[in-house]
């Protein structure tokens, strides 16, 4: 188990290294000059040169990358912005704020959004899928399957404004979505985020419904489930104690990936409800040619994915005793 974790964490660090290097390179492959944008509209060549120097962009690419990398672990001194303590991801070209600080500020919004949406997704997705599998072929199954297809076909930027118009503006049932820190006002946090949670989960839930249904149907046809029935186990025991155990593995797998994606920023949902999370930060970084911010957001998103991948692998071993963590 320990050696498994050590190896997986080393592997994860390698992946993050590669991702950051590729992102770094790609940014320069794009024919746009961040220094020119930084310099302003009227920009004499000597000023541009100075800006380049101050941003550290007059050095070879791999040296720049090396400085960036070292900054994460040791901090660095930037000509333009001054001291940047570790973990230093640099300063935003656009807003001049430290990248790490900006991400830390935005993270609670993304985390809240992800947390609430995950609960809605898992609860609705799995329960609906279970009902469909229990009543397979019957009207309830057909209703559940059909509504999951409809859910999967909807778009956040369509459902979001529509629901906001009815629930917030017309009926005034819930407040306009925004982020209220949970530490300040838990009830406000809940009510203000309820609509984004629901809207974000609509498209994801459908996946889990279909996955749960098909996995349960498949597991229920397994030999060991027949054995359980032959032992006199009740339908409920067969369903929850035997079949569910096997159906969980693929669900855990896709949930790990979805969770990581959400933590990397739910861009469309954040844009739709003007929530200032990681996703919004990423969009702005792209629009502003903001390399440090873009790299920071990319690395955080990638880190979420590799960490959750390890968590999922560890979970496998808990669900299925045949899986050995070696």
């Amino acid at each position: 188990m320990t050696s498994f974790l050590v190896r997986r964490i080393l592997g994860a660090l390698m992946i993050l290294l590669i991702i950051s290097a590729v992102t770094f390179y790609l940014f320069y492959a794009v024919p746009r000059d961040p220094a020119r944008a930084f310099c302003g509209k009227i920009c004499p060549p000597e000023t541009l040169q100075l800006v380049r120097h101050n941003l550290g962009m007059d050095e070879p690419l791999f040296v720049q990358y090396w400085h960036w990398l070292v900054g994460i672990f040791a901090g660095r001194e930037l000509v333009q912005f001054g001291d940047c303590p570790a973990p230093c991801l640099g300063y935003s070209f656009a807003t001049q704020e430290p990248v790490f600080g900006a991400i830390v500020d935005r993270f609670p919004v993304t985390l809240s959004l992800t947390f609430g949406a995950s609960i809605v997704i898992l609860a609705f997705g799995i329960i609906t899928g279970m009902i469909a599998a229990w009543k397979v072929g019957q009207p309830l199954d057909k209703i559940a399957s059909a509504s999951s297809v409809i859910g999967a076909s909807l778009q956040i930027y369509f459902v979001g404004p529509l629901l906001a118009f009815y629930l917030v503006d017309t009926m005034q049932l819930i407040p306009r979505p925004s982020y209220v820190p949970v530490t300040e006002d838990p009830v406000g946090w809940f009510t203000h985020l309820l609509l984004p949670w629901v809207v974000l989960s609509i498209i994801f839930t459908a996946n889990y419904t279909r996955m749960t249904r098909s996995q349960m149907v498949e597991q229920l046809a397994e030999d060991y489930v027949r054995t359980a029935r032959a032992k006199g186990m009740s339908n409920r025991a067969v369903f929850f104690r035997f079949a569910w155990r096997g159906a969980m593995i693929p669900i855990v797998t896709i949930f790990g990936v979805d969770l990581a994606t959400l933590l990397g920023g739910a861009i469309i949902t954040e844009q739709t409800f003007t929530l200032h999370g990681i996703g919004e930060l990423a969009v702005r970084a792209v629009q502003n040619n903001d390399l440090p911010m873009l790299l920071g957001v990319t690395i955080v998103g990638a880190a979420m994915i590799v960490i959750l991948n390890i968590v999922v692998d560890v979970l496998y071993a808990f669900i299925d005793p045949r899986v050995r963590l070696t």
Binding site: D223, Y224, T227, A230, F242, R245, D320, P321, R322
Partner: peptide
């Protein structure tokens, strides 16, 4: 309890979990 059954392939017929 009164009627029990054993199956052909004990690997798939036993729960792996």
């Amino acid at each position: 309890d009164r009627v029990a059954m054993i199956f052909q392939d004990p690997l798939t017929a036993l729960s792996p979990f």
